[in-house]
Amino acid sequence: MKELSTSHLLGIKDLTKNDIQIIFSTADSFKEVINRPIKKVPTLRDVTIANLFFENSTRTKLSFELAQKRLSADIINFSASSSSLNKGETLVDTANNILSMKVDMLIMRHPHSGAASFLANKTKTVIINAGDGTHEHPTQALLDTFSIREKLGSIKEKKVVLIGDIKHSRVALSNIFALQKLGAEVMVCGPTTLIPKYMSELGVKISHNIEKALKWCDVANMLRIQLERQQIQYFPSLREYTHQFQLNKTLLDKVDKPITILHPGPINRGVEITSEIADSEHSIILNQVENGVAVRMAIIYLLAGSINRV
């Protein structure tokens, strides 16, 4: 089968293993395209895409925008701070108004979990979820797993640990689904308060000791502490968190094996990871950003194939 099983990208949970493999092989082609002297292809010249960002974003927004431009799509951008949402318009009305201007696809980031699938049910268009609350961030998980595959050759039977604020991280949930579908073993590691109870039901290992977790894994994906989503205090102080869960050279020296290090960004240098490790040869943080454009081009390309066939 060389066709996606879905017409939206709402979360990794809805994708099959085959879907992910199609996205990866298409992304391989786009990675080659964006390394040409002329990095643009004319494929989507008759497609219009709206980027709806109801929550702040730098990397994801730029990456999506660049992916769309490289595909020659027309784009319009929307951010919540400067919109009619402040005047009381509902999400569905906002979306339908944008769609009336003959827009073919919506990329949406929203602070509320489930917003993307809500909109997919209420509107007739292709939706790509660019992060919904603490639920899913599918494109991030796809680019993370694509980058691991690129570095290690495959995902199957690899041991991957997600370290940090699992509770508030949509990256964590999407990564767990993607890694499991591709046959990896997953562990989450962090303070007890930042690992939700349901984690054990997802079939992932749980650890509260970073040293043990690192000894177990091949790949460590470091997550940021999402202070902006924390209404109460989950740990005594940032200093104490850093003391217990920071990835640093002393810790890696104790482990004594190469561990591939990922970080979805933005990095808080000196908190979850030291500069020395973030910039080391085992870190593929900047490869993730490069691959993000190729993976997003692949997703947009594959989903655009199904809109209003001419």
Binding site: T43, L71, R309
Partner: peptide, 22 residues
């Protein structure tokens, strides 16, 4: 050379066009 992204029949076929290696 793979020409998939330069074809003029994108969205005119039943199945999506899947690229090969360049």
């Amino acid at each position: 050379l793979d020409i998939t992204f330069f074809r003029d029949d994108f969205r005119r076929k039943e199945k999506p066009l899947i690229p090969s290696v360049t």
